[in-house]
Simulated scan of single mutants.
Amino acid sequence: MVIALDGFLDAGNASALASGHLLESSSSRIVASFEVDEFYDYRARRPPMTFFEDHYTDYDAPRLVVRLLHDLSNTPFLLLTGPEPDMRWEGFADAVRKVIEHFEVRLSVMLGSVPMAVPHTRPVQLTNHATSKRLLISENVWAGEIRIPSSAQSLLEVRLGEWGHDATGFVAHIPHYLAAFGYPEAASAMLSQVGAVTGLAWDTAELDEAAEVRRVEIATQVADSDEVRAVVEGLEQQYDAFHRGEADSLMADDTELDPEDLPTGEEIGAQFEEFLAGLDDDGRGGQA
């Protein structure tokens, strides 16, 4: 079962783009649904609705559902999508456990993405995690311990491991200055790894084409702004130093550009915002 929840772990809209691509690539049917009222904070994330002239019409109700889909070889798999629960995470994890045991799911794969100090000019990197080392298929670029904010999805993986269910996942590293916009390159990279760990196969040509369009758009913006170009070059120096083993973190101290001189993600994101705001909002090369 592939799990991709909207919310905290979806920088660059990467997991949403990946799950959306899967839904577009196969017919599907809902095989399980969760009582969303138990988990959703409507005041924090107010669902959109339409007001027409003098009355309310449609309402986009949030849904947490499991769908049955098939890959290119007609192999069946499940896809859990919807908003990350705002509350009752333990109850949510237990409900997912019941779905997994009912359908005899052999492996759950989590998709996520986080903003990182990485440049868009380098390949998307993924952090691979799992409930058991035997499930890992790639070596992460760094080792160590870090305290991070939790999420319903990460807690679910912890609980599944405690309950004896195999779970793994991939977290894509998104350039922090593009975290608010669709980043299809990361979605394609995650699906490639999901295929590697599960044996499932999909055609990601559409995502790859959208990624190329996005790269051209960003390159145009970079070329038009000395400030943006300087920041990207600084991140490239830090990235390359880290991968040469010359730095302990992606914010290397020995690069030509002092990290303290780098604008924040919000500041550099503002440089791109005006350009990206006019693009389509479907996430496949446009604003997320």
Score class of each variant (00 low, 15 high):
E24S: 14
A241E: 02
I146N: 09
A186D: 07
T220E: 15
A210G: 01
S33P: 06
L72N: 04
L79A: 01
P184W: 11
Q125F: 10
H129P: 00
L22C: 05
G245P: 01
M190I: 15
G195R: 03
A187H: 07
L250R: 00
D203H: 05
G269W: 00
S26H: 06
M1A: 12
T81I: 10
H173T: 03
F77P: 04
M1I: 11
R214Q: 12
A277V: 09
E53W: 12
P115L: 07
V109T: 14
H165P: 03
E256Q: 10
V141I: 09
P263R: 08
G82I: 03
M251L: 15
E267R: 05
A130L: 02
S138I: 14
A11N: 01
L207W: 04
Q193H: 14
V66S: 07
V109L: 12
F242Q: 02
E212F: 08
A32L: 02
M251V: 15
E260H: 04
I268K: 02
I137S: 06
F181G: 02
D60Q: 14
V232T: 02
K98F: 06
P76Y: 06
I218R: 03
G283W: 11
L5Q: 04
S28G: 09
W163Q: 09
M251Y: 03
T131H: 01
D280S: 12
T204V: 13
I137P: 02
S26M: 06
W142K: 08
L178A: 08
D86N: 13
A223N: 12
T81W: 01
Y239R: 10
F242L: 03
Q287L: 15
D10I: 14
P175R: 02
H70P: 00
R43A: 15
P47F: 11
A44S: 15
I146G: 01
P184M: 11
D258P: 12
L17K: 05
V118I: 14
F51H: 07
F77S: 03
T264E: 05
R147V: 13
V118S: 10
A61K: 15
A18Q: 08
A44P: 08
P184V: 08
E145V: 13
V171K: 02
V118C: 11
S73R: 13
G7M: 05
W89C: 11
A230D: 14
L160W: 05
A16C: 01
L156C: 05
G164I: 10
H102L: 13
W202Y: 07
S154Q: 08
D258H: 09
P76M: 03
E139R: 13
E274K: 12
